[in-house]
Every structure is written in structure tokens, then in C-alpha cells.
């Protein structure tokens, strides 16, 4: 139920960011529902596969989509107590996303074009550097909650009340920076570009068409939503439903939609103000993210455990 909502809602978030961004840049731009029209169009179209591609190329969209889907299923959206949360804790979520990325990069290399290889190489560099920062930020949270189960982490946050923990602040900053990098947004990657030398994610899915492309795009939107929900619910859990009854669920849903809309707004603003970085500036950016996460960890271990 919850999963279906996320899957259905993910294109909306992407469309929302896109249309806000267009407004900020004084363009009219497509409405927030545009991604749904794109999806429908792509699903209707015939699939063209390059003759040099192997089975990996055709299997990859399904692997990418299903692994992202499963990762999303383990993140609490509107209510806290998710039956699927114990199946996969947060590290499994990270692992599933990595599995999707692995196949995405392989698919990029499969056709044998220069762009695919370029995209795969860059994506793996970015993800490799982002991984320690992600886990460091997550460690800070899970160590304070004494659990890596996401439902438990969110529940622990709720009991804490509105206390300012320096560790959370740092972890939040680190995780936001990582989320921007991992979902391929400006300043790390630009989802709207098809300029040969700057693309990363687009370079890998360059050869896809029809329903394969639709799955790949949908998976990317899903990932954006996943990170949004993660940040919103783990750091600002207030408003999430405690029980599974329809009332709590409805309120939780309304709250998370509002939170995501705000996050999307922030993302659109930051994408408008910032310019895309050169690839070799990205390591510095991710080092900053790691540093924030490390500071969060240190301040937790030094300031908060002892207290």
C-alpha cells in the first residue's frame, strides 16, 4: 500500500522539482504531471536495442528498478511501524541501491560506446567516494538509536523531542550532500543535460529506449524520492503516523507530502543558484560530506555518549 504510493508518487516529485526550477528560471516549463505523460509515451513505444548489446543490457532495467523498489519498501513513509522494515535494515537498503548502480554501470558498458564507459567510470568514482560519507552519517544515527532498523531509528527520534543534537546536524548536512551526489543532481551531475562531456547518469542510459528507458527513469525518480523520504523522516519525523489505522495514515501521508514538497523546493532553488562542478572537483565536495558525517560521529561519541 505504502510502497504503491511511493512508486506512484515518485514521478510527481521529479516533475515538481522540474517545474519549480523552470519558474525560478523565468520559464513556463512543463507542469508537474509531465513525468507521467513521459512514462506513458515511453511504455507505448517500441524497444530498440543496439545489436552489440548482450543479455545484461536487457536485464539491467529490471534489476535496477526492482532493487530500487525493494530498497524503497524498507523506508517508512507515512507510518512508522512498517512490516517490511525488519526484512532489510538501512545497510541492506544501501546495499540494494549499490546493486542497482552496479547493473546500471554494467549496462552502460555493454553496448561498447565511448559514452557508456565514460558514464560508468564516473558514476562508480562518485559512488565510491560517497559511500563512506553515507555510512558515516547513518552510523551516527544508528548508534544513537542502538539499531539499524529504520522503523526503530524513526521511533527513537520521535521520543527525543525537539532537542538540538550537534551530531544530527552534522549528519544531516553530510547526508544531504551525499543525497545530491547519489541522485545525480546539480552540482554533481545534471539530469537535464545531454552535453556529451558532462553527463554521468544520462551517459549510461543513453542507448535505452521504450519501456527499458521508462524503467530506468522511474528508478532514478524513485531513488530521489527515497533519499527525500529518508532525510525527511529520519531527521524530522514529526507528523509520521504511529499506528496503521486510516486516520493516522492519512495525516502521516499529508505531512510527508508537505515535507517532500518543501525538500523539492529547496532542491530546485539550490539547482538554480549553483553551477555544475567539474568532475575533479567532486571528490572535494564528497570529502566535505564525509567530514561533516565524521564530525557528526565524533560529536556523538564525545559529547553525547558520555552525557
Amino acid at each position: 500500500m505504502q510502497l504503491a504510493l511511493v512508486v506512484a508518487g515518485a514521478p510527481l516529485l521529479a516533475g515538481w522539482v522540474k517545474s519549480v526550477k523552470a519558474r525560478l528560471q523565468n520559464r513556463r516549463g512543463p507542469g508537474p504531471l509531465q513525468p507521467y505523460r513521459d512514462l506513458r509515451k515511453l511504455f507505448m513505444k517500441q524497444v530498440l536495442v543496439a545489436d552489440s548489446a548482450s543479455i545484461v543490457f536487457r536485464a539491467a532495467p529490471y534489476v535496477v528498478f526492482t532493487s530500487t523498489l525493494l530498497a524503497t519498501a524498507a523506508v517508512p513513509l507515512a507510518v512508522r511501524d512498517l512490516p517490511t522494515a525488519p526484512v532489510a535494515d538501512i545497510m541492506v537498503v544501501v546495499g540494494l541501491l549499490a546493486l542497482g548502480r552496479f547493473f546500471l554501470a554494467l549496462a552502460g558498458m555493454d553496448v561498447g560506446t565511448a559514452f557508456g564507459g565514460m558514464g560508468a567510470s564516473r558514476e562508480m568514482l562518485i559512488s565510491a567516494l560517497a559511500e563512506p560519507a553515507t555510512l558515516m552519517a547513518i552510523f551516527t544515527l544508528t548508534m544513537s538509536a542502538h539499531s539499524t532498523n529504520l522503523s526503530t531509528v524513526v521511533g527513537f527520534q520521535l521520543t527525543q523531542g525537539l532537542v538540538l543534537h550537534p551530531s544530527y546536524l552534522f549528519a544531516l548536512m553530510g547526508l544531504v550532500l551525499v543525497a545530491v551526489a547519489e541522485t545525480g543532481r546539480i552540482p554533481v551531475d545534471n539530469p537535464a543535460t545531454h552535453l556529451e562531456l558532462t553527463m554521468v547518469h544520462e551517459a549510461m542510459i543513453l542507448e535505452y529506449s521504450g519501456r527499458h528507458l521508462a524503467l530506468m527513469e522511474w528508478a532514478a525518480w524513485l531513488k530521489l524520492t527515497l533519499y527525500g523520504v529518508l532525510i525527511a523522516n529520519v531527521f524530522f519525523p514529526w507528523g509520521i503516523g504511529e499506528t496503521t489505522d486510516p486516520g493516522a495514515f492519512g495525516i502521516g501521508l499529508a505531512v510527508i507530502v508537505a515535507k517532500l514538497a518543501l525538500l523539492g523546493l529547496a532542491l530546485a532553488v539550490s539547482e538554480t543558484v549553483l553551477a555544475k562542478m567539474r568532475l575533479f572537483r567532486v571528490p572535494q565536495y564528497l570529502n566535505l560530506a564525509f567530514l561533516f558525517a565524521l564530525l557528526g560521529m565524533l560529536s556523538f561519541l564525545i559529547l553525547e555518549v558520555a552525557a
Partner: peptide, 10 residues
């Protein structure tokens, strides 16, 4: 059905 073609490669 899926049809085969040359790679696009931009």
C-alpha cells in the same frame, strides 16, 4: 517485441 538496431551513441 524488441528490435535490433545500430547503437545511437549520441
Amino acid at each position: 517485441e524488441v528490435s535490433r538496431c545500430e547503437p545511437w551513441d549520441c
